[in-house]
């Protein structure tokens, strides 16, 4: 995976089951790397640089770093 190659084992992940689809992360994403439909959200992998801005702007903490399979802020 492109993102993994760039940043080692750190990967941003959105937990779609907990998401409210509010759009905060999409607005702050500098790379336009998040796709948000009516009740569907995902990261467009080749664009994401793991910059973390989406994590900081998520009001309900559903975007996390995946560190070797462990989710953390």
């Amino acid at each position: 995976m492109y993102r993994q190659a760039k940043t080692g084992k750190l990967m941003i992940e959105i937990l779609p089951d907990k998401c409210d689809f509010c759009g905060c992360c999409v607005g702050v994403c500098p790379e336009d790397a998040i796709e948000l439909k009516e009740a569907e959200i995902f990261i467009i992998d080749p664009r994401c640089t793991n910059c973390s801005k989406c994590i900081w702007s998520c009001p309900i903490e559903v975007i996390k770093f995946n560190r070797d399979g462990v989710l953390a802020k």
Binding site: C24, V28, D32
Partner: peptide, 10 residues
């Protein structure tokens, strides 16, 4: 694109 500092996440 909005700076994350200006985004009031509510």
């Amino acid at each position: 694109h909005i700076d994350f500092r200006d985004m009031e996440s509510a």
